[in-house]
């Protein structure tokens, strides 16, 4: 009975937040536009000069572009949470017979849905730009799973500043380093040409293993143990961020 109520409450609040997204088309456009600009820049400006050792540079950049899209997309989750906490909507819901965890989960699910749409749009544009994949259904499902888990991890990370920030800027500032992370990874150039110190960082940060795993899956190449490392990173970040987010959530009243 309580579980049914929790699902119902989450559904109602999810519908409310999706309405927010549909009514602010600027956020939809911005989340697509910024990663798209990077993709255009890398494919049509820098791409010709970058030797990746593979034929199709659109295929090469797409995973990194998708991660940038997710990293900037979750900052809107932080923003929406911040607005709800500061605007008193959270207190209003808490003082009502509404399942408490539903209030937060609605935001998390909204983030997953919104980012899924952004990713789908970017993949369609990439197809127009020459992205080709002969990956089978299972590889696509595996790639979708990794992207979903990565979105979930960054969403829980976004929840922390969303609940605790003192200003709007503070709520979304956390995403800048995340957006920057793919640039110091294998997302756009092979790591082999980087100086040793940068290379060590690039090869051991989460984006590289996630990008490599996605790239291998979409190119039907052997994924090796990259996929395991990628999943471990995503799960680890998600679990740690979830723990801190829940702690922050208990303090909001």
């Amino acid at each position: 009975m309580r579980k049914v109520k929790a699902v119902r409450d989450t559904g109602i609040l999810f519908g409310r937040l999706m309405r927010h997204i549909l009514r602010s088309p600027d956020t939809v456009i911005t989340t697509v536009l910024m990663p798209l600009a990077f993709m255009l820049l890398f494919v049509y400006v820098f791409g010709g000069a970058i030797d990746t050792g593979t034929g199709n540079y659109v295929n090469y950049t797409l995973p990194g572009v998708l991660l940038i899209a997710i990293a900037s997309g979750v900052s809107y989750t932080a923003f929406r949470l911040f607005t709800d906490v500061r605007g008193g909507m959270f207190s209003r819901f808490y003082a009502m017979p509404v399942t408490r965890s539903s209030v937060l989960w609605a935001h998390v699910l909204t983030s997953l849905a919104a980012n899924a749409v952004t990713i789908a749009v970017l993949i369609l544009i990439a197809l127009l730009m020459g992205f080709r994949s002969d990956a089978g259904v299972f590889s696509w499902l595996a790639a979708a799973g990794i992207l979903l888990l990565f979105t979930l991890a960054l969403t829980w990370l976004a929840v922390i500043p969303g609940l605790t920030a003192k200003s709007v800027d503070g709520a979304s500032a956390f995403s800048y380093p995340l957006v920057f992370l793919p640039f110091i990874s294998s997302a756009f150039v092979p790591t082999a040409t980087m100086p040793a110190a940068v290379r060590v960082f690039a090869e051991n940060q989460p984006v590289t293993s996630i990008v490599n795993a996605l790239r291998a899956l979409l190119d039907s190449a052997p994924v090796g143990n990259e996929i395991g490392i990628a999943l471990a990173w995503c799960a680890g970040i998600a679990a740690a961020a979830y723990a801190f987010a829940q702690r922050a959530y208990r303090r909001v009243g």
Partner: peptide, 27 residues
């Protein structure tokens, strides 16, 4: 109970009608 806090807590993105329906559905 119902609480009307010190600062009006309405959802500015929703219309007045939608705000009321949201609360009605949650209740």
């Amino acid at each position: 109970i119902s609480l009307t806090g010190q600062f009006a807590a309405v959802d500015g993105v929703l219309t007045g009608r939608e705000n009321l329906r949201l609360i009605a559905r949650l209740r």
